[in-house]
Structure formats: structure tokens, C-alpha cells
Design a protein around this nucleic acid. Structure first.
Length: 261
DNA sequence: ATGGTGGAAGGTCCA
């Protein structure tokens, strides 16, 4: 079972690119973030033509929005509000073998890394804290958590650890929060199980850096985690870096894992 | 310190 996560930055605009990615990567399940389409306008027929008969989506106008596309049947799980907002940042479903897939789009957090000065950063920290509380209260089970978490936790998840310590996405407060989620639910960073932490690894490059890939100033904001029950089933992981070089790309590229389930 | 680009909108917000 190949599971992919991708911040597509507008599903309707990048439907052709989704087709290309599906052809190249042949994922069984695709979790998307920032689909930027309200449910009534979701292009379900086009998604079906790509081979995904089963889909869940939760969108709104202009912003955010998540979807799970699947070749195998999905059982939708109960939806939940995060930070009291219905802003379409989470969907969860069960795969036929009982594995739960959680797809998250964590708030980006604005530019100023101070929760008092910047309410977007406060929202991001609160969201992460709520994730920790929620998963901390769950029993262990076969679970996969994917998504654009908007945090690059490791030194080699950014192009310069030192220069990014005060940049939103790599601050100690955010990384600490992310590590707390991982600790309370025994999450395993599946991608770093396969690609060791000693290697630089990015999944996002800003649109504002026009010298890509020359300067390669990226960050690993997109993640796939698994619970210990699935650790022995993990076979591979990869980041589809080349998609950033395609015409009219998303600023994020797909990340995949292979699970023997 | 600043501004750079892209998407959804149809002015401006968000990333």
C-alpha cells in the first residue's frame, strides 16, 4: 500500500499535475492539503478518472481544505473541530485492514514567531497543543498521520538550522510542540526511518526563491508518521523532489511511504 | 532590513 501526501495548492488548478504524479508514483491513497475548493465544486469525476473511486473531502472557499483519495474503500471517521474553528484542516478514515489515516493541514503561523504579537502563530501553537492532547488520549492502534505540518523539526530538515531558529516553521516552540505530539502517542517519523536524519531532506521550497534548485533553500514541512504497530510493515519512503521543477508547480512536493498492509 | 512569487479572489488575504 503506497500512501502519498501532497500540499497541492489548489486542486482545480493542478488537476493535470495530480494526474502526472499518480501516473509516476502509483499511490493507493493520496492525502491532499490546500485543495482550496468548496465541497460543492469538488472535481469528483476527474478524481474518479484517475482511478480513485473512494474519496473524502472537506473544503471551503479560497483557503485550506483537505481530501483523501483512495483506490480502496474508506470508512470516514468522525470529524472534529480544531481550536474551535471549522476551517477544514483535518480528515480521517479507516482503510480496509483497520489502519486509520489522519490527514492534517496545520496552520502556517504567519511571519512573527511570537504568540502575543501574532495571533496566527498563537493559533498554530494551540493547534499543535490540541493535537498532542487528542492523540495523547487515544489508545495505541494502527495509525498513519500525514500532512503539511508546517514545521521542519530536525536540523537537516532545513537549509540552515542556525539561520532559521527564529523563522516560523523551525522555532524551538514549534519543534517542541511537534515532538510532544510524537512522544504522547509514540509516533514514528516513517520518512526518517528510511532516509536517515544525517541527510538533508526538504519537501517545500518557497515560490519567492527564484533560484531553485540552485540554492536549494528548502524545508521539510510535509510528514508521514506511523504508530509502532505499523513499524514492521514499513518498506520504503521517498520525497518526489522533481515535481518542484515542473511547470506551474506547487511549492510543496509529494511524500510517500510504502506499507506492507 | 527588505522584498521577493503564487493562488483565489476580483480587493486583499493567505501562504
Amino acid at each position: 500500500m503506497r500512501i502519498a501526501t501532497w500540499n497541492i495548492n489548489s486542486l482545480r488548478l493542478r488537476m493535470p499535475m495530480l494526474g502526472k504524479i499518480v501516473k509516476e508514483l502509483e499511490p493507493d491513497v493520496v492525502c491532499l492539503q490546500e485543495i482550496k475548493v468548496e465541497d460543492a465544486l469538488f472535481p469528483a469525476d476527474d478524481v474518479r478518472k484517475l482511478g480513485f473511486e473512494h474519496m473524502l473531502f472537506r473544503g471551503m472557499k479560497s483557503y485550506n481544505g483537505v481530501a483523501i483519495l483512495s483506490r480502496v474503500p474508506l470508512v470516514e471517521m468522525k470529524k472534529r473541530q480544531w481550536c474551535g474553528k471549522d476551517d477544514c484542516r483535518h480528515l480521517a478514515a479507516k482503510l480496509p485492514d483497520g489502519t486509520e489515516v489522519h490527514n492534517f493541514y496545520v496552520p502556517a503561523g504567519g511571519d512573527i514567531p511570537d504568540p502575543i504579537e501574532n495571533e496566527k502563530f498563537a493559533h498554530k501553537l494551540a493547534f499543535i497543543e490540541e493535537m498532542a492532547e487528542w492523540f495523547g488520549s487515544k489508545r495505541q492502534a494502527k495509525r498513519v498521520l500525514v500532512g503539511d505540518l508546517n514545521i521542519a523539526p530536525l536540523e537537516n530538515d532545513v537549509w540552515s538550522h542556525k539561520q532559521l531558529l527564529k523563522i516560523v516553521s523551525h522555532t524551538p516552540a514549534e519543534v517542541g510542540g511537534l515532538n510532544k505530539i510524537m512522544t504522547v502517542h509514540k509516533w514514528i517519523d516513517a520518512v526518517r526511518e528510511i532516509i536517515p536524519p544525517e541527510e538533508l531532506l526538504y519537501s517545500w521550497w518557497s515560490y519567492r526563491n527564484r533560484t531553485w534548485p540552485g540554492s536549494d533553500r528548502g524545508r521539510r514541512l510535509d510528514h508521514i508518521w506511523i504508530t509502532p504497530a505499523l513499524k514492521g510493515k514499513l518498506r520504503d519512503a521517498s520525497v518526489f523532489r522533481e515535481a518542484r521543477g515542473w511547470e506551474k508547480p506547487s511549492d510543496h512536493v509529494p511524500v510517500t511511504i510504502d506499507l506492507d498492509i
